[in-house]
Write a protein that binds this DNA or RNA. Sequence first.
RNA 1: GCGCCCGUAGCUCAGCUGGAUAGAGCGACUGGCUUCGAACCAGUAGGCCGGGGGUUCGAGUCCCUCCGGGCGCACCA
Length: 658
Amino acid sequence: MPYWFFMFHLVEKRIAEAFAAKISTLYSVDAPVQTEQPKQASFGEIAVPAAFQLARQLKRAPKAIAAELSDAVGTIEGVAGIEIAGNGYMNVRLDRGAYGSSLLRGEAPLAAIEAEKTIIEHTNINPNKAAHIGHLRNAILGDTFVRMLRAAGSNVEVQNYIDNTGVQVADVVVAFERLEKKSPADVQTLIGTTRFDYLCWDLYARMSSYYADHSEALEWRKSTLHAIESGEGATSELAHLVSDAIVRAHLATMYRLNIEYDVLPRESEILHLKFWSQAFELLKERKAIFFENEGKNKGCWVMPASAFKQGASDEEENTDDSKVIVRSNSTVTYVGKDIAYQLWKFGLLGKDFYYRKWHTYPDGHDVWASTSEPQTGSPAFGRGARVYNVIDSRQSYLQDVVVAGLRALGFEKQAEASVHFSYEMVALSPRTCIEMGIELSDEDKKKPYVEVSGRKGLGVKADDLIDKLIEKALEEVTSRHAEDPEPQRRRVAEKIAIGALRYFMLKYTRNSVIAFDFAEALSFTGETGVYVQYAAVRASKILGKLAERGDTLPDFRAELSRDAINRQLSDERLWQALLTASKADAAIEQAVSSGEPSHVARYAFQLAQAFSSFYQDFPVVAESDKEKKTFLLWLTTYFRAQLERTLGVLGIEVPEYM
RNA sequence: GCGCCCGUAGCUCAGCUGGAUAGAGCGACUGGCUUCGAACCAGUAGGCCGGGGGUUCGAGUCCCUCCGGGCGCACCA
């Protein structure tokens, strides 16, 4: 039996299967057996409540069934004993020596990489201004989900869709041309000499308020959009300058957070390669949309409400609820374009982009962008078996329409495999608004949070927040290591700041609104990324101290027999520590299946807590008993590895020191 | 009006597909650094899980209803 067979989640499965098999032969009942964590550690490691479910079907007392079952199930590899507790719980105690020994001697099985591709689309920021904290939540959630899936063996492609021809880009272009009287050459100079994404942030807010006061200016937007779509002329050139520069700024911001992409599909190529007309033909041909001859949607191609609303009847009475896909002026709506794009992701469109290398990251990874010019030697993208779109929950209605589009086209399987990975917005706490000098109405002051608005320029820029976190971390580092050179302290401070930020965005479940508050985000104590990093650093510190004293790490496998491990693990504190540390894979697996990155963050915190109390209780280097010292050192290296691995899934690095 | 989400300790939030005595962080209060650095640890106080019905051996979790909040429901993206 391979040693990794003892890894916690596998032991759990084995126990569940053993009980399921016995239940099947004994009672002819076939059902998967649930396992759970006992309420108290003293009850054992794994609880099986199966007797309760059986009690109903068999009309017998759960306690009697539990007694019968636990006798009948016999010995299970790695299990020391089963006890009946409460009204019919079967509590399983693991064989500590066998478990610990297998962790020491085992190699983690390499998760087989799936052949099928999973596409995750995240970030998707309009390329017309600097990124803000709301975008950070999207990108951090998306990137962490990518890391989780990859850790579990999935073949993942990361896409970041760029809407470089939309209204938001057009508005900044209008502002440059009409308000600022800038030529493309002028803007090129600005790009090279200013903090361009910040400049556009302010300019976009100014343009929005200009529209509010001069509604006739909306004509500028209209003509600008046409010029951009045509892809020719100075206005189009300006739009490309702006959006390309902003995309570079966004990728740089995200790279600070250890976030990379594989491909940037762009709206300009979706237009020029006529993805939409292909999708339009398909939609018409398969009667997924129809032409409306009367009513308020007269002259439009619409998708009937019955396709995407569960309660709607498919009779004509509710045509009001239909979703317009093609307007009466024959232009396509956002949802229509999104259906075409979703079809491409699954390889169902019958068209593809060409790709050119956009950027090579310092680690050597390339990110490609779509282009309409044929290329040689570029990789293939798209053709996913599953697609996750990381988009905030306010767009769930539109995401439903997109999926309904696939279904109406007969792509049932792909509709099922389309996941709206939704999350709630990041708002601002009233206190933070006041700190930033944002004027609040009396009504807003009473609210628990205030919504961010790009149009009003109301929000916290991502890079400002990161800078602020780094400065604060640098102060803390300097107060402890004033003698170290500044670049070194800064490097440590950057890792701490990024850890704090990523953890902050991940500790909340996806459907909870984050009321962003500077004081909370800047906190470095308690349940934070910093706390977890600190545990990892302290583990390294112990090993460093050993080397400092001229000692070397023992050969753990040679020196720690199964009996020795069993002896050491009779100390309840050490057993609980090892048990917690061994659950990393179980935590990741659970987080993947529930689609909830916060589960990994919470586990990371528990892991760090377990290490911190271990650190407090056991002076490793000073331990005089040889066997015990060897065991404590091994546990330290194991903790260190598990902390680093779990933090890695969260996209957080371990600093050299703290 | 219709749809989705939320309401758990003073504050911010966990609570896996219903399971044993509802948890954590912050804040408050007590202790603990001559030790592998205290960005830490140990402990105390703090709860009719929004209200009311129901299903169940068992409900913070499922159903109904009411109250309070948020977000959607464009020929905008």
